[in-house]
């Protein structure tokens, strides 16, 4: 019998779902073994009956062996969908960094909801100012939560988005009844750049001009970007973006520094704390870094990591 799969996106961007589609022909090959019973991006199963006349208090998700959820939890609807997914899926996968650590949308956790509403519905140049929408739309929660702040998560698949190789590995391992083999080291570990020690570095600079490298030569000949004085989050970020047999981390392939989109190396690590500590221990003045909280917790602001500043209260 085919494996029943349910998929949902909460406070998400659909990029994780596109990453699934980017399995390409591998997805077609897997398709006969999978039975997608629910996946709003691709198929038409509805929460409240196919005729839209169901009880709004009973959100329906079909039973499935495997559930994939992308996105964090931002409003009441997300919470209800997540709880229904948990209740109906045997194994629940947090798909993507929004689901595992809040992701980019959790940057809002540095602000109070009221500030957001004020700006969005009354402050923008093009706006005809009006009260916040409140009718028939799901109320906001106080902030953005990662899935495991609300329900139990069985498998964590971070990445913004996760590499298709690892999505395939998670599904295949499940089909074969084994633990998925996922990377657990840091991005630096998968990075081929040349490391010679930091030299006289006392500060890190903003990415206002390109890194120094010879475009005719491979990435393995480029000096580590952190050693070049650019902030690179590789040391404190979970490896994975280079895929199963990738040449280099994705951003490094474009010759730009890592910004930490796979979240911390350990699921409960703190990218900001670890990066500041790494810089400070190497004698780099951390005050030379602009936007420290928003920059270093760019992808992992859930779990109470990013909070409104007292001054903003």
């Amino acid at each position: 019998m085919a494996l029943r799969v349910a998929e949902e996106g909460l406070s998400s961007c659909s990029g994780c779902e596109v990453a699934i589609l980017n399995l390409g022909e591998r997805l077609l090959a897997l398709a006969p073994q999978l039975d997608f019973v629910h996946m709003p991006l691709l198929m038409d199963h509805k929460y409240f009956g196919q005729l839209g006349d169901g009880d709004l208090k009973r959100l329906e998700i079909p039973q499935a062996e495997l559930g994939l959820v992308s996105g964090g939890v931002r409003n009441q609807e997300h919470l209800e969908v997540l709880q229904a997914m948990r209740a109906n899926c045997g194994t629940l996968v947090a798909l993507g960094t929004c689901a595992t650590h809040g992701g980019i949308p959790a940057l809002i956790n540095g602000l109070a909801n009221a500030e957001l509403m004020e700006r969005y519905y009354r402050g923008c140049e093009t706006n005809d100012p009006a009260p916040d929408p409140t009718e028939t739309v799901p109320p906001f929660l106080e902030r953005v939560y990662a899935l495991d702040e609300k329900v139990k998560v069985d498998i964590y698949l971070p990445g913004c988005p996760p590499h298709p190789d690892h999505i395939a590995e998670a599904v295949l391992a499940f089909l074969e009844g084994r633990e998925p083999a996922l990377p657990h080291k840091s991005v630096c570990d998968a990075c081929p750049t040349v490391r010679q020690g930091k030299g006289q570095l006392k500060s890190v600079r903003r990415f206002l001009q390109n890194a120094q490298y010879d475009p005719a030569k491979p990435i393995a000949d480029m000096r580590c970007l952190l050693e070049q004085g650019l902030l690179c989050m590789g040391p404190v970020t979970r490896a994975g973006c280079s895929g199963a047999d990738g040449e280099a981390p994705r951003c490094l392939k474009a010759r730009v520094p890592c910004r930490g989109c796979y979240g911390p190396v350990r699921q409960n690590g703190n990218q900001m704390l670890d990066m500041l500590n790494a810089l400070a221990s190497n004698g780099i003045d951390i005050k030379t870094l602009p936007d420290r909280a928003g920059g270093l917790l760019r992808f992992s602001g859930a779990h109470g990591r990013l909070r409104p500043r007292p001054a903003a209260k």
Partner: peptide, 16 residues
Amino acid sequence: HIMAMRGFEKFIEGRP
């Protein structure tokens, strides 16, 4: 009905 709003306009404030 659009069911969610993430607020990019607001939370990019202060970012380089």
